[in-house]
Design a protein around this nucleic acid. Sequence first.
DNA 1: TGTAGAATCCTAGGAGTCCTAGGGAGAGTG
DNA 2: CACTCTCCCTAGGACTCCTAGGATTCTACA
Lengths: 191, 191
Amino acid sequence: MARAGVTVERLAEAAAELADEVGLENVTVSELARRFGVKDASLYSHIRNAHELRVRVAVLALAELADLVAAALAGRAGKEALVAFANAYRDYAREHPGRYAAMQVELDPETARASAARRHSDMTRAILRGYSLAEPDQTDAVRLLGSTFHGFVSLEQTGGFRHHARAADESWNRTLDTLDVALRNWPVQTA
Amino acid sequence: MARAGVTVERLAEAAAELADEVGLENVTVSELARRFGVKDASLYSHIRNAHELRVRVAVLALAELADLVAAALAGRAGKEALVAFANAYRDYAREHPGRYAAMQVELDPETARASAARRHSDMTRAILRGYSLAEPDQTDAVRLLGSTFHGFVSLEQTGGFRHHARAADESWNRTLDTLDVALRNWPVQTA
DNA sequence: TGTAGAATCCTAGGAGTCCTAGGGAGAGTG
DNA sequence: CACTCTCCCTAGGACTCCTAGGATTCTACA
């Protein structure tokens, strides 16, 4: 009998595709084995357990998105960079909802270090070069941007904005305008 | 044999507690039945399926948080109201991670209408009275606030801020300062 | 080329979960 | 007391995760 040619890489890729199709919580070892024409027990020589599958999707997604963001950021600065970053982020989440959901799973410290998570915060910091913020304000701003982008995309995905006339796109653009203004008028310490 | 006294309300309450203890994804019909000293099949005369359990936790959490936010908002306005709202939100998420996660499940339109979701957006709008924003900017601002709060709390929960010296609390306070400034200097339409 | 060892896949099966079907026992009502 | 409704039961099917141990295929090296 011919071998199915299962590898961890192909498994992660297939799991990511499956996640985008049916949602991350429906990514199952059995279904994946079915897609490879293999018994589910066979997959356990490639992965340790079902959780590792999700972690691998997360790592894959983090790397993919980091590449996309890097490309979007190339040659841009200031607000242009902010908008490019944000749109790359949001577009990815909409095209790959399962991969995006996977990015939110908690990674153990080692996996997190080996992942592209660092590249993400580094690129966010790069955006802030256009706004002249020193530490620790820079870290606060990185967190503000990350929070707002993720929060918007997350609420949009779970249908939070659907039952209202105002289009999500317009709110998104105004959100970016607002962030741009906020970064340029970063508040001085009040406490 | 004495009856266990299972009701939908007690089920939802127990499911919410279980979710806070072991995470929403580990809220299982079987475990819940165990806690009531009852066979799992017995619960299906109270709920239709496992999904309904999570929906009921979501509805419960939305109502609880709406009450807390309403109390926090009483007698406050402007930035004070903004901060009170935000802290009530974040505190709830930290004290009740499972309930909070449940709030992010997609509700069907009917359930959403019957839930406290509307109270949440109404109260967010109430905050904005201190900032004199007309529609559609008000809707955009509501979404910005919701996104930022949810995004921050969500990233904080999945450990996004843990591997950095800067304390999350301080970033949170600066985020609120920034939002306050942003709402007071709401950008005029650029496009 | 022959073969040892590693990698890949298999069968078999246990445990847990979700859910349905159908039956019996307690509680309240006439 | 009898009737009915609700609650809870047993029984069991389908699916998932995962382990153990065996068989097959591929690879590399003598």
